[in-house]
């Protein structure tokens, strides 16, 4: 078998541009985790069902296990690491999950955080039902979702508080 063909890929992740040389079949999730060392993005199923690998592609929640790295070149990608503020402080979503015990083992958490970050951007004041809808595509085996729903509502609250302050 010939050596696998390699290709140069430019990824823009959390505002930083990276050049990597990978096989065309390299998944975005693997490129982020193993080529860029951004291991916050987790892989729970590799078939697009669990949502643990969710990253934001031009702001839209996207399953990194269903996208090739080469296909991600023209987009701005945000991972859980990119949610943290430049000064190291927590974004409203991160703070909310911490405040509301929205995680246990933490494995599913990055996928929820990115999903909710985009969700409250789109709907800054979700009702409880809307909060449930927002996370209805992500699996968590630990929390029974109760505190995750609470975290979504809290995140919206914190975010609203912040925009008021800066207004």
């Amino acid at each position: 078998m010939p050596a696998p063909e390699l290709t140069d890929v430019t990824l823009t992740v959390n505002g930083v541009q990276h050049e990597i040389t990978v096989e065309p079949r390299r998944l975005l999730s693997d490129a982020l985790r193993h080529d860029l060392g951004l291991t916050g993005t987790h892989v729970g199923c590799e078939h697009g069902v669990c949502g643990a690998c969710t990253v934001l592609v031009d702001g839209k929640p996207t399953r990194a296990c269903l996208m090739f790295a080469v296909a991600a070149q023209d987009y701005a990608i945000t991972t859980v690491e990119g949610l943290t503020r430049p000064d190291g402080s927590l974004s409203p979503v991160q703070q909310a999950f911490k405040d509301c015990h929205g995680l246990q083992c933490g494995f599913c958490t990055p996928g929820f955080l990115t999903t909710v970050a985009a969700g409250i951007e789109e709907n800054p004041d979700p009702t409880e039902d809307e909060a449930r809808d927002m996370i209805a595509g992500n699996l968590c085996r630990c929390t029974g979702y109760q505190n995750i729903v609470a975290s979504v509502l809290r995140a919206a609250e914190l975010q609203a508080g912040e925009s008021e302050e800066s207004a």
């Binding site: 951004l38 291991t39 916050g40 690491e81 949610l83 943290t84 927590l90 911490k98 995680l103 933490g106």
Partner: peptide
């Protein structure tokens, strides 16, 4: 009391098996 482990886990700084030994 709020958990001390969470600050690490919500920022993507957890260290699970596949995160080790690049």
């Amino acid at each position: 009391i709020a958990r001390v482990e969470d600050a690490r886990l919500v920022t993507g700084q957890g260290r699970y098996a596949d995160d080790l030994m690049p």
